[in-house]
Design a protein around this nucleic acid. Structure first.
Lengths: 334, 334
DNA sequence: CTGTTAGCGCATTCAG
DNA sequence: CTGAATGCGCTAACAG
C-alpha cells in the first residue's frame, strides 16, 4: 500500500474540471470562479494535497538545492561554515545538500559529479587535502556556478572566499617573536593546500623581517592525521636543538601535539609553547591553551561564499567571479 | 549566455536518430547497433553530455535525497550524527539535505514542509527543544517515511533511535554516589525533551535505590542557552546547602557551568565536581573534565537511524516502525 | 536493431 | 471564466 500522494489530476477528475482549473484555483489565480476555487481548496484540504515542487522546479530547470562538498562535517571549522551557509541559503528558499570528501580525491570528484547530475543550482567546495588534480572542477563550472571557500584554488575562473592566512601567519609569528622566542617550529599542513603555502610564506617573512635564522629542520608538513602529527612532533622534540614554540596548522593539531609533549613529560606553556590557527571555541575551556591563535570567522566565511553563489545563480548575466579575502583576527592569551 | 546543458534530444537531432536510440546507446542497452552506440558515445563525449538525473528520478517518483532536520549543526553531537548519516546514505547512492531548526518550532515545521514539497525520499528528525506541538510530523509520515533520532517522540507510528538515557543517568548517579557524594544536583534540559524526563527518572531512581533523600531544590531545568545555565548554576551555588556535584544535561552545559563556578572562585574537581552526558571529544583535553560522563555514540546513532530509514524507503511493504535503544557507555575519569 | 508513443506533475500559452 | 494542448528530459512498453 505504497500510498502515493494526491495530484492535481486526481482532484480534477473528482471535481469534473480540468487540471489547469485546479492549478489556477490553487494559486488563487484572478480569473477563476470563486465557487470553483472554494471547491478545489476544500478537496485539496480533505485530501491533504500539497504541491510537488519538484515538478515545478524540473520544468523551470531549477532545484533550489545548493551542493556543498567539504572534507569533514565533524571538524568544528567546517560545521560552523556549513551552519553559516545553511542560514544564508535557507533564508532565500534554498536547501543544502552536504557531502563529505574525507580529504579524498575520488570521493570529492564523485560528489561533484553526483551533485551535477542531480541538478543542484550551484556548488560550494572546500577542497580535499589530497586533491592534486583539479580536472573534476573544470567540467563542473558550466553550467553550474561553483564557489570555493577556505580551501580554495587561486587563479581560476571560480569565485573564492578565504582567510588571509599569510598575513595571519605573519602576525602570529610576530607576536611569538616579540615575546622573545627564537626557536619556532612550523607544523604545517599538506602541500596540496593553498593555506599551507600561505602559512609558510607568513612564517618565513616574519623570520626574515625580524632577522631570525631560518632553520629548515623546524619546518615540517603533516597530512592532518593524528598519527602523522605524533610522528612529526616526536621528530621536532628529538632535534638536537628542539623548538621552544610550535606553530601548528590549526587548533585540532595543536591539541594532539600537546598530548605528545605531555607524554614526553613536558609542561605546556612552561617547557614548550603552542601557537595556532582557527580559534576553536573549546580552547577557551583549556587550562593551557595555545598562547596565540587566529580567528578565521568560518561562519561568516560560509555566509559570504553562499551569498556570492546565490548571486551567481540568480543573476548569471552580471555575475563576475570574485575573490574575497576575509581578514583574520589575532587572539592572544597571556 | 546561460549555457544550458546538452540533452538527448539535441544529440538525437544531430545524429539523425530518435531519442530512445540515444538513451539506449548511452546505457549500453544490448539491443543497439555497436556502430550507433559508438557514434552516440562519441558525440556525448565531445558535447560533455551528462544525464539529467532529476528527470529520471522525477519519472520514478524518487529523489535519492534524504532530509535531515536537527537543532544545530554546530553542536558536536549532531555533527557526529550527521556525519554517520551522510556516510551511510551516500554509500547507497543517496544524498543528504540538512536543515537546522535552531530549537525553534516554526523553523522545524517549515523545514519539514519544505522537504516534503521538495519530494525527499525520507526524513530524519531530531526534535527542536521548543517543539511541544507535534502536528507537523503527522501529516509528514504519509507518504514519506520518517525516523526520529536522539530527540525522539515515544509512542508514535514512527521509528525512533535513541540512547537509553534513563539507564545512563542511573549509572552516572551510581558512580557518583559510590564515590561518596550525597548532595547531587541535576541541571536538566527542557521538559519538552524525552531525554530530560529520562535523565530525571534515572536520577530519582538512583537516589531512591541508594536511600538518599530527594532534595527538590537540587532539581532544575534549563532551556539550553548559556544565559539560563549561568542563572541556574548561580541559583544552585547560592542554596543554603549547595551541591557537591552537579549533573548536567550534557558536556557543553558542564563547560559553561564550570566557568560560572570558576568565576565564583571554586576549584573544579576540588570544591565542586561535575558529571555529565555526551563524552564530547574535547573533554579529553581538559585538565579538569567532568569526573564521569556518558558516551552516547552519536555517529552510530546516525548510522542506525539512516539504515532504518533506507530500509523503510526501499522496502516499504515489509517495513515496520521500530524502536532502537542504543546502550550508553560510562566514561569515568579519576 | 530502431522509431513511435505515452507519461511522470505541473504551469502556461492559446483558444474558446 | 475554463478547457485543451504543449513541454520540461528521460525511460520503457509496444511496434515494427
Amino acid at each position: 500500500m505504497k500510498s502515493t500522494s494526491t495530484t492535481m489530476k486526481e482532484m480534477a477528475k473528482q471535481l469534473g474540471v480540468s487540471v489547469s482549473t485546479v492549478s489556477r484555483a490553487l494559486q488563487n489565480h484572478p480569473r477563476i470562479g470563486s465557487r470553483t476555487r472554494e471547491r478545489v481548496h476544500a478537496l485539496a484540504e480533505s485530501l491533504h494535497y500539497f504541491v510537488n515542487n519538484r515538478a515545478i522546479n524540473f520544468k523551470n530547470k531549477r532545484s533550489y538545492n545548493i551542493g556543498i562538498v567539504l572534507p569533514y562535517l565533524t571538524e568544528q571549522f567546517f560545521s560552523l561554515a556549513l551552519s553559516g551557509i545553511e542560514e544564508s541559503v535557507s533564508a532565500k528558499g534554498y536547501r543544502v545538500l552536504v557531502m563529505q570528501s574525507k580529504d579524498d580525491y575520488q570521493r570529492e570528484s564523485d560528489a561533484i559529479t553526483s551533485l551535477m547530475k542531480h541538478g543542484v543550482d550551484g556548488i560550494l567546495v572546500s577542497m580535499a587535502s589530497e586533491t592534486y588534480n583539479k580536472k573534476h572542477f573544470h567540467h563542473a563550472n558550466f553550467p553550474i556556478p561553483l564557489v570555493f571557500f577556505d580551501r580554495v584554488i587561486k587563479h581560476t575562473p571560480y569565485s573564492i572566499v578565504y582567510a588571509n592566512m599569510k598575513d595571519a601567519a605573519f602576525q602570529v609569528m610576530e607576536y611569538v617573536i616579540l615575546k622573545g622566542y627564537k626557536k619556532i617550529a612550523l607544523l604545517n599542513g599538506p602541500n596540496s593546500l593553498q593555506a599551507t603555502e600561505d602559512r609558510l610564506k607568513g612564517y618565513l617573512e616574519a623570520l626574515d623581517q625580524y632577522q631570525l635564522p631560518t632553520n629548515l629542520e623546524y619546518i615540517t608538513n603533516i597530512n592532518l592525521t593524528k598519527e602523522d602529527t605524533r610522528l612529526k612532533v616526536q621528530y621536532l622534540l628529538e632535534l638536537p636543538s628542539p623548538p621552544e614554540v610550535i606553530l601548528t596548522f590549526h587548533d585540532y593539531i595543536a591539541l594532539d601535539a600537546m598530548q605528545v609533549c605531555k607524554e614526553k613529560g613536558l609542561k605546556i606553556n612552561q617547557d614548550i609553547f603552542f601557537a595556532s590557527f582557527s580559534n576553536l571555541s573549546f580552547c577557551d575551556y583549556l587550562d593551557t591553551p595555545p598562547i596565540v591563535t587566529v580567528e578565521q570567522f568560518p561562519f561568516r566565511m560560509g555566509q559570504q561564499a553562499a551569498s556570492i553563489l546565490l548571486n551567481a545563480i540568480e543573476s548569471p548575466d552580471t555575475y563576475q567571479p570574485q575573490e574575497i579575502v576575509i581578514p583574520c583576527k589575532l587572539i592572544t592569551r597571556g
